[in-house]
């Protein structure tokens, strides 16, 4: 029984570890600098915790095996070992707290964004993302780089105005509303995340970042994608019966392609 228990514990440990080593199921490739920093953080954590995981399980199995075979004599009588206890506690504190401290600069870079997000700044592409059951609405400020005003009374899904954009308001005439997101490669993008009904969560796995869209609040995410491609936007906060199909796409394209697309979209307006 002792050997069986130990072997099962070891086999389970091995089975769980293998796919993490062979990367059988793995994160998609990151397409931002921050994404790659997060991956680094992840790899450090994986290495350290993987080591702890294996050592702890092996030690557990070994102890069970070694002291399960004992047929003669009696068990040791000891109340513990304070030196070992303190050593272990100190090591655990340093590792665990150290790990989280190393990740802080990345967190700061990702999330410490000043709140004047609706003021478009030089060179940065602003996109407003509004979650709704069960679609994503993207709004581009258009040529004037200024978002038009919205009015809750103008909201009309059927007429193609899901966010209640006032076309007659200042800067509203050229706003572009699309269900998918298209951004030029290597350009910094700032998203203003909103919701018109319940909580949703804007998540693009390749960007490595997600944020809830909270009705009544404006969340901010920034990213600079450096690899062209088509990526999926998946909702990661339960939002109702269609939660699983609340999906859209992020297209990272070349500047030229982006400009051409913009022009095409603008041409539909008039």
């Amino acid at each position: 029984m002792s050997l069986l228990t130990a072997v099962v514990v070891w086999l389970i440990t091995l089975a769980i570890s293998i796919p993490f080593v062979t990367r059988t199921w793995w994160m998609p490739e990151a397409i931002t600098d921050i994404g790659r920093l997060i991956d680094e953080s992840f790899m450090v954590t994986l290495a350290i915790t993987g080591f702890i995981f294996v050592v702890a399980q092996v030690a557990l199995g070994y102890t069970v095996w070694k002291y399960g075979r004992k047929s003669d004599g009696s068990a040791d009588y000891t109340h513990g070992n304070n030196k070992l206890e303190i050593l272990w506690t100190a090591a655990a504190s340093v590792i665990f707290v150290g790990l989280t401290l190393t990740g802080f600069s990345v967190w700061a870079e990702t999330r410490f964004i000043d709140r004047r997000s609706m003021e478009p700044s030089e060179g940065r592409l602003m996109i407003e993302v509004t979650g709704q059951q069960f679609v994503w609405n993207m709004r581009y400020p258009g040529e004037d780089n200024q978002f038009g005003p919205t009015d809750i009374n103008l909201i009309d899904d059927a007429a193609g105005n899901p966010v209640g954009l006032d076309r007659d308001g200042p800067g509203g005439a050229d706003d572009i509303m699309v269900p998918e997101m298209r951004v030029p490669v290597n350009r910094e993008v700032e998203l203003a995340l909103k919701s018109k009904d319940v909580l949703h969560n804007f998540f693009v796995p390749e960007l490595r970042i997600k944020l809830d869209t909270v009705p009544g609040l404006v969340g901010t995410l920034r990213f600079k994608a450096d690899k062209e491609g088509k990526y999926e936007i998946v909702c990661s906060e339960l939002c109702g019966l269609g939660h699983y199909k609340m999906r859209s796409f992020l297209y990272v394209v070349s500047e030229e392609e982006y400009d051409a697309w913009m022009e095409e979209q603008a041409s539909y307006l008039f």
Partner: peptide, 17 residues
């Protein structure tokens, strides 16, 4: 052990939910 991943906000950005 998996809690060590989720307790770090940066890694939680990916794994949350």
């Amino acid at each position: 052990i998996s809690g060590i991943f989720l307790g770090q906000p940066t890694i939680d950005l990916f794994f949350h939910d």
